[in-house]
Amino acid sequence: MQRMGMVIGVNPDQVATYKRLHEAVWSEVLDLISRCNIRNYTIFLREPENLLFGTWEYHGTDFEADMARMAADARNQEWWSLTIPCQRPLETRAEGEWWARMEEVFHHD
């Protein structure tokens, strides 16, 4: 199992939309997340900075393949067409990232 943490901004005028979308995530998207071996997926919002912090556990054996499967899914692409315009990626993110990945520096069970 691998824990992941990531951060991205959310456009101030899109906070309500982003919250509304996540109050009723489509069942197909939730099923896809599970089929791609992601568990305990949570997104937190920090206002007034308008930062989203996401965390999850990856329980698979081929992260790149699972992420490619997620990105290729037509229903997920439709979901992203609604959520991505709400987001404001960090300028300091790595090449190829949308959400900036974070280094885990502490964990306690």
Rank of each mutant, 00 (worst) to 15 (best):
R3E: 08
M4S: 10
G5R: 05
G5Y: 08
V7Q: 09
G9W: 03
G9Q: 04
N11M: 12
P12L: 09
P12E: 15
D13N: 15
D13A: 13
V15F: 13
Y18N: 10
Y18W: 13
Y18L: 07
K19T: 15
R20N: 15
E23I: 06
A24P: 00
A24W: 03
A24C: 08
V25E: 09
W26E: 14
S27K: 11
S27H: 12
S27V: 01
E28D: 14
E28Y: 03
V29Q: 07
L30F: 02
L30H: 01
L30A: 15
R35N: 10
R35E: 12
R39M: 05
R39P: 04
Y41P: 02
Y41E: 02
T42L: 07
I43S: 06
I43T: 12
F44E: 01
R46E: 13
E47I: 02
N50S: 12
L52P: 07
F53R: 01
G54T: 03
G54E: 11
T55S: 14
H59M: 11
A65M: 02
D66W: 05
M67C: 01
A68W: 03
A68L: 09
R69G: 00
M70H: 05
A71Q: 11
D73L: 01
A74R: 10
R75C: 09
R75M: 09
N76F: 13
N76R: 11
E78V: 00
W79L: 05
W79M: 07
W80H: 00
S81C: 06
S81I: 03
T83E: 03
T83N: 03
I84R: 15
I84Q: 06
P85E: 02
P85K: 03
C86G: 06
Q87D: 10
R88L: 15
P89I: 04
L90H: 07
E91K: 12
R93P: 00
G96W: 02
G96H: 02
R101A: 13
E104M: 13
V105K: 06
H107M: 06
H107L: 06
H108C: 11
H108W: 12
D109W: 09
